[in-house]
């Protein structure tokens, strides 16, 4: 997506493989894989990522 005329790079936060594929096809430069993303995909608030619900680094 980036080129000489566009100095910005674009990233997208994803919570599943499906959205990662969609973001890749849309031409994003990088993916953000966040603990919150997994929880958001399951319908919880981003704030749930603070809680001891899942290991954040796995």
């Amino acid at each position: 997506m980036t080129d000489q005329n566009n100095p910005f790079i674009f990233g997208a936060a994803v919570g599943s493989g499906l959205t990662a594929l969609a973001v890749d096809r849309a031409g994003a430069d990088f993916l953000l894989v966040l603990n919150a993303g997994r929880l958001r995909m399951r319908g919880a608030s981003s704030l749930a990522s603070y809680l001891p619900l899942r290991p954040a680094n796995e």
Partner: peptide, 22 residues
């Protein structure tokens, strides 16, 4: 379970430590 490895002061903050599925 989420208190494993924490000391007494850290245990107060266990609610905001996403270390495992308690």
């Amino acid at each position: 379970p989420t208190l494993h490895g924490l000391n007494g002061r850290q245990a107060d903050l266990a609610m905001v430590m996403p270390r495992l599925d308690n």
